[in-house]
């Protein structure tokens, strides 16, 4: 009696799980086939030899990985460190980091401002932050370009007022890239920060003032520690896409100021080095993975004590 009832529940449970796998199958298959799965092919390609007109030759080779770190002189085969690659990776990390810091400096007060509005107004402010996020990134980058170009509105204005006599060259600089990325990724910082700040218990802040904290003391010793998970989440959300940014440096950096994304693209043109491009891609993914790991570890550490 009891046994068969148990069997029946077990059967039902099995069917339940099987149904759920069937239901999720289309999504999983599509993502694995056209988004995640191909990453394995990239790993595979990074261990093949470059073909003469792009693509690869089907033989094992570590040349791609070798080329990430070193360059071989075309004439005498001498090996030296691939300075160009290092400097591009280093610049990407620096720019992504600077972008994250700027997004934090601007995003934190903005998120705080939104979180302290009357509840029924908050979603409207939040909406104002997200609108640019949902509009085309290329268009937003283009918009920044229009503002900072030599013939753009800033230079034209400054020259009209007479502050400068010749336009300031802002396009095609690291500054332009950083400005563009800050502009494009700011909402990604504001949203998680807001989510944390919204849950902030303002009675704790009251307690802080009661115990003689200054405005800054309350901010530094109470608010910031309490919303640390949000700060970390926002930083990762900005840092990762900034590091692997492609459109912004391509448009605002011109051909000179490359970031990793553009370096990778370069390897996939005609007659370029696909295995090197693949190896560079894998390197990028590994860096991103480390950033995420750092986030997950920190989030689980500070998450527990954040709201007791």
């Amino acid at each position: 009696m009891t046994l068969s009832a148990q069997d029946a529940t077990e059967q039902r449970q099995k069917k339940h799980v099987r149904d759920r796998w069937l239901l999720s199958a289309p999504a999983l298959i599509l993502i694995i086939a056209a988004s995640v799965g191909p990453l394995l092919i990239v790993v595979l390609y990074s261990f093949l030899a470059p073909g003469s007109y792009g693509d690869v030759k089907w033989e094992f080779s570590t040349e791609g990985w070798f080329n990430v770190l070193f360059t071989r002189d075309i004439f005498d085969d001498t090996v030296s460190l691939a300075d160009a690659h290092f400097s591009i990776f280093w610049r990407s990390i620096k720019l992504a980091f600077a972008t994250t810091v700027f997004c934090l400096i601007f995003g934190f007060p903005t998120a705080y401002f939104i979180a302290t509005r009357a509840p029924h107004n908050r979603s409207l402010w939040l909406f104002l932050i997200t609108i640019p996020f949902w509009t085309n990134m290329l268009i937003r980058t283009f918009a920044i370009q229009e503002v900072i170009r030599s013939e753009g509105i800033i230079n034209t204005l400054l020259m009209k007022i007479g502050i400068i006599s010749a336009p300031i060259q802002m396009m095609f600089t690291d500054f332009a890239i950083m400005l563009g990325m800050t502009y494009v990724f700011l909402p990604l910082m504001v949203l998680p920060l807001y989510a944390s700040l919204e849950k902030l218990d303002f009675r704790l802040i009251e307690a802080g003032y009661d115990l003689y904290a200054s405005r800054f003391g309350v901010l530094w010793r109470i608010i910031i520690p309490l919303v640390k998970p949000g700060i970390i989440a926002g930083s990762i959300l900005v840092f990762v896409p900034a590091l692997s940014s492609y459109v912004v440096p391509r448009v605002l950096g011109g051909g000179k100021n490359l970031m990793v994304g553009n370096l990778i693209e370069l390897q996939f043109g005609q007659g370029r080095n696909w295995p090197l491009g693949a190896a560079l891609s894998v390197t990028l993914v590994i860096i991103v993975l480390f950033a995420m790991l750092y986030y997950v570890r920190n989030a689980s550490k500070s998450g527990g004590s954040a709201h007791g």
Binding site: A27, I31, S35, P38, F268, A278, L284
Partner: peptide, 18 residues
């Protein structure tokens, strides 16, 4: 399901190109 959000777009693009 969330993986496409985490992988750098440029890498996915390269992977699909291949």
């Amino acid at each position: 399901i969330n993986m496409p959000l985490l992988v750098p777009e440029i890498v996915t693009a390269v992977a699909l190109l291949i």
